[in-house]
Structures are given as C-alpha cells and as structure tokens.
C-alpha cells in the first residue's frame, strides 16, 4: 500500500511548527500504524534527516503513551483501539493521512507529535487516590463490594490516561479523564470516605490547568480507546454538586 502523509513537524516547544508531506510506498496491510512510522523514520535516518518524534511504549494498547490525531480522529479511524493497535488495513491504498499532535492548551507540544501530558498527573496528584498508608489495612474481604459496583468501577478504572478525550473534545475538556477516576473511587466503599474532597480538588485542578468545559457532546466517549462512558461524567457532576451542597 502507498500513502501520502502530512505530518506536523515542530523542532521544540518554542519553535513554530509546520506540516511536511512524505510519501511512503510498499506498506503491508498487516503493518501497524506506528510500524509504518518506524519505516518512514528509518528512511529519514537513511537520508540523514531527523526522524519524526512520537510517544509510544507498550505497543499493545495499555500504557497510554501513544497519541496522534489521525485524519480528525485521536488514535485514528478504528474504534476501541489506541494508535499502536491501529493497522494500515483500516486505510485505503493511496490515502492521504494527516497526522497531528494532541491539541490543547494544557498539552503543549514538546517536539513534532510529542506533547506534554503531565497535567494529567497533576490532576491525579490533586486527589486521585485513597489516603491509606502501606500496612495496617483491613483484610481484603472485610468489606464486601457489590459485584455490579466493582464492575462499574472497573469500567471507569480502565482509563489509560492517553488524553484522547481531551484531544477530540471541541472544548479540550478533561472531564472524561477526571470522571473516570472520581467515578471509580465513588463507587467503592474504600474511596467514598474522601469522595467530597476528591471531586472538589480534582475539578479545581482541572479548571486551573486550563482545560475547557464539558458541553456534553459525547465525542470523548465515541473516541475513547477504552470505551469509557460519559455516564461517569454524570456521576462526577453528581459527586461535585453534592460535595458542594452538603
């Protein structure tokens, strides 16, 4: 398969970026998207040019490192997968593919397609934990948890922190990310104790970092590689409202 790639190149955080066009030929349909970029990078290195920088690590869809805004979709056109799980068979021979970095004020570009997502760590730092020290905790079976709650908590906890929700949201809102964490803990007895402070602190941090406001467009849910539902955003809204009222 042959492709025309239009890729965002940016030397560093301060530099002005631009799109560069690359042609790549003879790509196998079984090749993953990142492997295709690996091949392109090797060709660039052969020409003593700087390869394209992009974040990636586990290459099996769980670490959340890979990003890339591909033809108007974070993680590309396939559903329920990350970029590293996207395969070239999802494109047509001869396609033009536009590859952009995540765009959001709190996710500044570091280089080319690499962005700084440490804002997510700061949000977790603000309250995405249960305050227990190591040791001195009760037996794991001391507090039964209804299976359905545990399962719903797990649905939320599946978040890989990739930032696709922010990238796709027309408002660059981080609500789905924050909701996934708040919701996970709100559903479990272990997390309920601090539910109030958690919701308030995490939302305050999210706002402070300059993420946009949720307008319930549902784009995050549609593009989330882990299919996290916006029902968790509703739960976050509830948690936040009750935390402020009570």
């Amino acid at each position: 398969m042959d492709f025309t790639l239009k890729i965002w190149r940016q030397e560093n955080a301060k530099a002005k970026g631009r799109f560069e066009t690359y042609n790549i030929t003879g790509i196998s349909a079984d090749c993953s998207f990142l492997e295709m970029l690996d091949i392109l990078n090797q060709q660039l290195i052969d020409k003593i040019e700087k390869p394209i920088c992009f974040d990636h690590d586990c290459r099996e869809g769980i670490c959340g490192a890979c990003s890339l805004y591909i033809n108007g979709h974070p993680h590309g056109p396939d559903t329920g997968v990350t970029t590293c799980q996207l395969h070239m068979r999802k494109f047509k021979d001869g396609d033009t593919i536009i590859i952009e970095p995540w765009r959001a004020k709190p996710f500044p570009v570091i280089k080319d397609l690499v962005v700084d997502r440490s804002a997510f760590d700061q949000i977790i730092e603000a309250g995405g934990f249960v305050s227990v020290n190591t040791g001195g905790v009760p037996d794991a079976n001391a507090i039964p948890v209804p299976r359905v709650d545990a399962e719903t908590a797990m649905d939320a906890a599946a978040c890989i922190g990739c930032g696709a929700c922010v990238a796709t949201c027309k408002n660059a809102s981080a609500m789905l990310f924050v909701a996934a964490k708040v919701s996970q803990f709100a559903l479990l007895p272990q997390g309920k104790i601090e539910a109030k402070e958690r919701a308030i602190n995490m939302v305050a941090k999210m706002d402070e970092l300059g993420f946009g406001n949720c307008t319930n467009t549902g784009a995050c849910e549609a593009e989330c590689p882990k299919n996290i539902s916006i029902s968790h955003i509703a739960r976050l809204n509830r948690e936040y409202l009750t935390a402020n009222i009570s």
Partner: peptide, 18 residues
Amino acid sequence: QNWFARPTRYKKENYSQT
C-alpha cells in the same frame, strides 16, 4: 474558555460521530 483551551486548531477537525 473553551476556545482558549485549544489555542492551536487542528488542520483536520474532529470527525467523531457524535
């Protein structure tokens, strides 16, 4: 605020089916 949250816009805007 939402506009400010994305100072640089995408070349190819969001296509998600929502």
